[in-house]
Write a protein that binds this DNA or RNA. Sequence first.
RNA 1: GCGGUCAUAGCUCAGUUGGUUAGAGCACAAGAUUGUGAUUCUUGGGGUCGCGGGUUCGAAUCCCGUUGACCGCCCCA
Length: 437
Amino acid sequence: MATFQSLPGFREFYPDALARRNHIFRLWRQTASTFGFAEYDAPVLEPLELYKTKSGDEIEAQLFSFTDKGGREVALRPEMTPTVCRMVGAKANALKRPIKWFSVAEYYRYERAQKGRERAFFQFNADIFGEPGPEAEIELIALLTQCMCAFGLTEQDFYVRLSDRNLWFYYLEALGLDEAKTRAMLSAVDKFEKAGEDAFKAYEEQHGPIGAELKAKILAFLQIKTLAALEQTLAPVGGEKLAARLADWRKVLGGLEAMGLARYVEVDLGVVRGLAYYTGFVFEAFDRKGELRAIAGGGRYNDLVAKLGGPELPAVGFAIGDVTLGLLLEARGLMPTLVNASDIYCVIGGEAERRAAFADIHALRAAGYRTDYPIREVAFGKQFKLASESGAKLALIYGADELAKGLVKVRNMSDRAEQDVPAAQVMEFVRDFFGGE
RNA sequence: GCGGUCAUAGCUCAGUUGGUUAGAGCACAAGAUUGUGAUUCUUGGGGUCGCGGGUUCGAAUCCCGUUGACCGCCCCA
């Protein structure tokens, strides 16, 4: 057994695991690019204060933080949001609006590792800055769903739960709750799905018993699954703010429906997301079977850029984690296996033939064909087995008989057909073969 | 940070009330096979049984500690 093991929650990526990771990254990048998002990157190590300012002092317990040799308090980034807010804030006036940016990066959190949660993990992060209206939400939720569908996932596999902190604020205000009670109630709502009635305990300890009528209204609000039900519930409450907010809801859901994405999105006010900096719509993606942790989460955070020292700049963003998504893809059989296949495998008779083959091998590789051969002498019969295992579509056979006649034998690995090709025309033959695919 | 379960080969696991040299399948490698593919047969490498201590004539097996994984709680940006 090895003397040293990797730290808890830190993963090693053997080639097959890295191939799966790259597959995920590739489709994320491709998808973001089709949506017109630009990729950026940023430091892994940041001033500790950046995260304390954003999330409060308690956050330090969840961070990989330390003092560097210059006496600076630093932390490995646990998320991208504060960093990207700083970057955008610093050049806000020079950036063309809307600012649509994405990144694929590794994050570090000092937490107990569990299924679907590691201490080091990757996230796809997408944000839109400078757009206060719900059009930004449409764009991002569309991107989120496509970032899942690109892998072959369907509405049978995942869905996005859409909620709204503003709606809760307006509704609870109309029900007569002050700000402190509202925050406590949102915290209870956040816990309700997991804890049930117990979720209200903390609220009642703080603010006294919840009246039966109030509780019934809260629970009814949580049951709402459609826009129609939402409008029906809020109609008697009235108020301009609520009316305007419902118009935003109609815009978001209408836009997503027009994109054909309605089947992925559910109204679900049970999602409030713990962190206090969200200022409007919030959403999370889950697997339909409810077996896994959240796959993605995001929302609007209009105050954060200013809070971190930039100008007033509205923003919406979300992140998808690689761990839970990877688990879901494995469970649905959507993770490809053979990734390192060759195009061409060379079967080589002996040492003399090897020298002749090398010229072609190098030329083929330079021309971009994935070309492999047995690195040391191997029995002829076994080489065909190796060729088969390599995944190559074509085997080039450099035998003594062929080379004596100035030929190379070419075997089509799928239909086993063979033909002789003049040695000088091998490259041309290969081009035709792969060009005609 | 707290509780529960578990830890034997690269992987999945077997290993009797404690008994002498710890096994199987898969995977990997070599050969049968010096000119033709996933089959078959033979053979091989690979283990201080997570680590440390204790009980015992004797520990993979029992006890204590520790590390890690998994499940749950807290948290989840």
